[in-house]
Computed example of a mutant assay.
Amino acid sequence: MKQPHPSITNLPLSPDEERRHRMIKYSVAMGIRVVCIFAILFVPGWWAIIPLIGAIFLPYFAVVVANVSTDPRRAEVQRPGNILPMTPPPSAGRADDDSRGTHE
């Protein structure tokens, strides 16, 4: 069965474009962390624990979220139809020489 040719819409993002998306996600998360740090100074009493927890755990989640691929095209791996795994051809000449019984 012949596979359809991949179209330009099936191609994954370029490395530069993917890096830009990851940097935006990470920067947004770090911006929220900065807001949490400033909120610690202004939130009274025990409520300051909430922005403190956000400021502590947001760097970890920012890295995880930035490195998770959300591109659905990334899940499918396409193998070009013309490339087949290459196995070495059987060495017909050498096998015939040994099978003739020249070793007396």
Rank of each mutant, 00 (worst) to 15 (best):
G101L: 07
L41H: 06
D97H: 14
R73S: 11
S14I: 11
S27W: 03
R33D: 00
I49P: 02
G45R: 07
R19G: 02
F42K: 02
R73M: 06
G31H: 00
E17N: 06
N82Q: 13
E104F: 15
E17P: 02
A75Q: 12
P12V: 06
V34D: 00
S99P: 11
V63E: 00
S7H: 13
R94D: 15
F61K: 08
P51V: 04
Y26V: 04
R94N: 15
P44A: 09
P15H: 10
D98W: 07
P4T: 07
T87G: 14
F42S: 10
S91I: 15
L58F: 05
G54F: 15
R94C: 15
G93R: 13
D98Q: 13
V68G: 10
A29W: 00
D71C: 09
H103K: 14
P51C: 08
I8Y: 09
K25P: 00
I50T: 05
A62M: 04
I56L: 02
I49Q: 03
I56R: 01
S14D: 06
V65K: 02
A95Y: 07
I37V: 08
R74E: 12
F42V: 13
A55C: 05
R94L: 15
W46R: 11
V63G: 00
P89K: 10
E17S: 15
I83F: 02
A55E: 04
P88Q: 11
G81L: 07
I40W: 02
V68C: 05
D96L: 07
P89C: 09
H5L: 11
